[in-house]
Simulated assay, not measured.
Amino acid sequence: MARGKKIYEGKAKTLYEGTEPGTLIQYFKDDATAFNAEKKDVIEGKGVLNNMLSEYFMVGLGSIGVPTHFIKRLNMREQLVRTCEIVPLEIIVRNYAAGTMSTRLGIEEGTQLPRPIIEYCLKDDKLGDPLVSEEHIAAFGWASQQDMEDILSLALRVNDFLSGIMYGVGIKLIDFKIEIGRVYEGDFQRLILADEISPDSCRLWDMETGQKLDKDVFRRDLGSLTDAYTEVARRLGVLPKNQQPVTKPTLIN
């Protein structure tokens, strides 16, 4: 796929100008990072799996009326997405205590929360994506009150969808992170789901065994990350049941 100039390169994806006005090409890399990029590796096939899984979730969300930046998957590693202005926040939805929540609050990992808890972090790698409150968000103008109401509504709809999909294949949705973009239509703006949804941005545990099927496998040296992601893809029907883990993919335009 022909690309324009590079617009942005993050830890797991690169964005290029699209060939159509108002579009970008989102390229999924094999790079894996953890602990604010203190731990790094290249995991063959990870980008291919994340591309396919993110397409699956974005299409599913679009089918129930959740607006997203996703237009179509172009090949094994690339998607065509709509250009948007990213709200400088990471929105974290937690159904069970895990990760930093368990560390901060002393709650045992795996404890079910009384209701989904939404947390916000400022998108700033240099600061380690610090946790911020709605007061910070309002005071510094990162999002308006109406934006926050819309973000909360979007986050809970995504949570309902993902929780149901995962439950149906024996996976517990512990938590996940999303990003939100602004698009402008004349004098009006609306918010859409952007970035990706994949095991890179979710915590996924097998409902019976508690086996981790997400990036914690890499963070905590629990085995093969591609095996874990392939298992998620198999259960969801994104890959055939007998599909071997994706390695050394050839379609990398």
Rank of each mutant, 00 (worst) to 15 (best):
E149T: 05
V238S: 13
I107M: 08
K215T: 06
D147N: 01
K123A: 00
V217R: 01
A12S: 15
N36Y: 12
Y229A: 01
T247A: 14
E231I: 05
H136I: 13
N36D: 08
E134S: 04
V42G: 04
D227I: 07
C202H: 00
E208D: 10
K126H: 03
I117E: 11
M52W: 11
G181K: 00
G22S: 13
T14Q: 06
L239K: 06
E179I: 12
V81E: 00
S163A: 08
L24N: 09
R157I: 05
L15S: 13
L225K: 04
S198C: 14
F176S: 00
Q211L: 12
T230C: 11
Q146S: 13
G164A: 06
A139M: 15
A194V: 08
R77Y: 03
G22M: 12
K11G: 04
R77W: 03
L222S: 01
T19E: 14
I165P: 05
D129G: 04
V48R: 03
N75R: 11
N159A: 02
M101L: 15
A233S: 02
Y120G: 00
I165W: 02
I43F: 13
G99M: 03
V183P: 03
D221C: 06
R219P: 00
I171G: 02
M148N: 06
K13F: 03
G186F: 13
L105C: 10
P240F: 11
P240G: 09
N95A: 11
E185P: 02
G128M: 06
A155S: 15
Q244F: 12
Q244K: 15
T111I: 09
P88W: 01
L80V: 07
R234K: 15
G237V: 11
S144H: 09
K72Q: 11
L251T: 07
I71N: 04
K177W: 04
R219V: 06
E208A: 15
Q145A: 09
M76A: 11
G168C: 04
V42I: 14
F161S: 03
N253W: 12
M1P: 13
T230Y: 04
E149S: 10
P116W: 03
I117Y: 10
A155C: 12
K46I: 04
F218Q: 01
E20P: 08
D125M: 04
Y120I: 00
K248Y: 14
E119H: 07
I71G: 05
G47D: 14
A2I: 11
K72D: 12
I71P: 03
P199V: 06
L122K: 15
A98G: 09
P245T: 12
I86R: 02
R203N: 07
K215E: 06
E9V: 08
N242D: 15
L154M: 15
D206E: 08
D221Q: 12
I118W: 12
C202G: 01
M52L: 14
L122W: 14
L173Y: 01
D150H: 11
D195Q: 09
M52F: 09
G223N: 10
E109M: 06
A98W: 02
K172N: 13
P116A: 08
E109Q: 07
S63R: 13
G60K: 02
G18P: 01
G18N: 08
F218Y: 11
L222Q: 03
L80R: 13
A34R: 14
Y8N: 09
F140K: 05
R220E: 14
R3D: 10
I192V: 13
S102N: 05
L239S: 02
G65Q: 15
D124V: 10
